[in-house]
Design a protein around this nucleic acid. Structure first.
Lengths: 232, 232
DNA sequence: TGATCGAAAACTGTTGACAGTTTGCGATCG
DNA sequence: CGATCGCAAACTGTCAACAGTTTTCGATCA
């Protein structure tokens, strides 16, 4: 995002408190403030050069996003979802992404399909080179593109909210346990269904893609838990 | 909810600002403050006997729920979703409810199935008597029961948020265009699939139920729009 | 009579201060 | 030496006031 667009965003979202919300959200998602830890309102206020009022408003908004939890008289804490919640989120995300695929299959333009194919080729090239640093942003953009292109803003907002919460679980690398090629074959199935304008098949392929990501996370988590037990 | 549980809720949600959030949300959903109108912070503050700080925090939380919109230097406005957004919401709600049905079919206890059958019989009785006042709360409880029983708290939270937004659209009566019997036959299909412990069929029946509600809303809306045009 | 301009009122955004609670630490006692 | 009690510091929850913007309303002019 360029400076002009950023300035516009600042004005649009309600100057101080809106900016703070984004800044604090970034700080949380970047892991600057670790999950489970308490957030100090004064510290944030002095850090951003404001008073506590806007900080509190921003935190209240972040509570709505499910990123923090407010405990009376004790303050706000960064949420740390249990594995059970991560599973719940994946299940919901799966049907949402399925809906995105189904919708897009029914309304994709030729240009959009070409764009999807382009992403696919770039990701396959990155996978061949084992270039994860190149692969990761492509993968992100690919999924974002689908969510946006399906044209359902409500769906997009819900989906993004879930992904943010999942970031708190901080297991991004674990999910790539199956390797880049596995993911890519799933991506190919998704794009083919959309290109064939087959909503049913697209829905299934998209939902299945997330379901398999969930399975990979689960397997990695249990593997990690087993190792932790052996270490004890 | 009794007084004790209410007091507990008050303490749990952060006394003032949490209570305000619920109160204001109720005021909005009851239609006390009409969609599109601006909310006056001072008025709310004096009405609840507090200062503006907690009111602003509560409004900020409601923004996260999508019930109000904040416009810089102009205040918060009650959102009034367009028909397009209502359609989006129904589509998302459909897959969420489908997931609830699928999940519940895979884990329903005998007691839960019995409860569902009970709801079904009561609703059919109410429908036979054309007793809409008895039917409506039953219908609500039936759907709530399914959402809760499926055991996915994330799903339940998302679903409830969507339903709240839909309340802003204020077309509850329109949706009952098909009559009580039509809804009930769909309900029966849902319960039968759950009782048969058939996740696939349950998912489809549940998703279809919401999809048909969407179609009923759409038909009613276009009928209303046509009449408005004829009046002009 | 209608439109335009300007000032006053109303309201939002933000701040600093105060009250009440929680937490951490040191002293005291078993 | 360990546990418990009490005090002080830190922090949250709330409030009232101030600054800046928007809106309203009346006066002026074409």
């Amino acid at each position: 995002m360029n400076a002009a667009a950023d300035a516009l965003t600042i004005l649009k979202t309600r100057s101080l408190s809106g900016v703070l919300e984004r800044e604090i959200e970034q700080a949380i998602l970047n892991g600057e403030i670790a999950p489970g830890r308490r957030v100090n309102e004064n510290l944030l206020a002095t850090r951003f050069g404001t008073s506590r009022g806007p900080v509190r408003e921003a935190l209240r908004a972040l509570e709505g996003l499910g990123l923090v939890e407010l405990i009376p008289n004790r303050g706000v804490f960064i949420r740390q979802p249990a594995i059970e919640e991560a599973i719940e989120i994946y299940d919901v995300r799966s049907v949402l992404f399925g809906l995105a695929g189904k919708t897009l299959a029914g309304r994709a333009t030729e240009a959009q399909i070409a764009q999807l194919c382009d992403y696919l080729e770039q990701m396959e090239a990155a996978a061949r080179d084992r270039d994860f640093d190149r692969y990761y942003p492509l993968n992100l953009a690919f999924h974002e593109f689908i969510i946006d292109a399906c044209g359902n803003a409500t769906l997009a907002a819900q989906y993004r909210g879930l992904v943010k919460k999942l970031h708190l679980f901080r297991a991004r690398s674990l999910v790539q346990g199956g390797g880049l090629e596995v993911s890519n074959s799933e991506h190919r199935a998704m794009v083919e269904a959309i290109a064939a304008r087959d909503p049913e098949r697209a829905q299934h392929a998209h939902a299945e893609h997330v379901a398999r990501a969930k399975a990979r996370l689960l397997a990695a988590h249990q593997r990690a838990a087993g190792e932790a037990q052996r270490t004890n």
